[in-house]
Design a protein around this nucleic acid. Structure first.
Lengths: 151, 151
DNA sequence: TCTTGATAGATAGTTACCTATATACCATCG
DNA sequence: CGATGGTATATAGGTAACTATCTATCAAGA
């Protein structure tokens, strides 16, 4: 009917487009990781533990750039799924050391391969230059946003 | 310790960077919309209704590009928040016509303004050309992803 | 030593999405 | 006209995030 066009293109803003892209990416990745028993959110944790970059919940949350309660819940799911184990830190009664199970370690390479494949397919038709610029612009956008919310 | 670097940059892939950007955008937008009583997910619905582009749950879901059950739950929240009302479709007992309340209509322009402002700030330092290219590349990425998941 | 503040993690409650499935109504064809 | 298939919405249950708040432990200074 009217097509009033009062708010023309909220749906063409970077903010909305990025949200669409993120959902589409997540759906694809989730479908491909499910057979391996991984959720998409697990991957930063798996990588951090595999590479010895974090061992405590706090450090994992920082590494994955999510809040502590989100990480706490994720670790509950990962433990339930048999991917991590916790051993109490002898030196600090509040903290646990988190480590990968053999299952998790065995499946991680394939999960990474699937994600790289998905990224390749998502960027199909991008020249090397376009891909590089896209990533650079994304990085600048993220920096701007993090500065904004920290203020 | 080791820094094995087995899975070097899962965290620098477009997929992960986009997810970071989307979360940062959502956090910022949510903070700014909360005083108006809107959630970030509401906006496509508000705009679709305001512009007369959809009236039923099904059409709203298509317009917002989310699944029907997600839209159903969102409409429950929006009704609870006094932003929409439903009137049963006289011609089809399964369906309802959804419309904006005066409150919603009154607040929508300010919400859109806040979102545009946030987008502007997020793109600070981007030349017009960079912004245009970023949006174009994002569009191609989304197309690729939607083709992939539809297959 | 004891209190006080900081830190590690847990819990509660919410949003925004998803898949899978159920229900209820409509429409058509034999 | 009644079964049957399709469509509109609802419900169930799950993931991945968030904020706000609580608890337990640690560390340091009065």
């Amino acid at each position: 009917m009217q097509q009033r066009k009062t708010n023309p293109d909220i749906l063409s803003t970077p903010g909305h487009l990025i949200s669409l892209a993120a959902r589409a990416f997540a759906r694809l990745s989730e479908a491909r990781l499910k057979p391996l028993g991984f959720g998409i959110g697990y991957l930063p944790v798996l990588v951090a533990l595999e590479e010895g970059r974090a061992e405590t919940q706090r450090d994992l949350a920082r590494f994955a750039r999510i809040e502590q309660p989100s990480m706490a819940q994720m670790l509950v799911r990962m433990e339930r799924d048999g991917l991590i184990q916790r051993t109490p830190d002898p030196a600090d009664g509040r903290s646990s050391r988190i480590s990968l199970t053999d299952t998790a370690r065995a499946r991680l390479p394939e999960a990474c391969a699937e994600l790289f494949r998905g990224n390749g397919e998502a960027m199909a038709g991008f020249s090397d230059e376009e891909a590089a610029q896209f990533i650079a612009l994304l990085g600048r956008l993220i920096e701007n946003l993090e500065r904004l919310t920290k203020e």
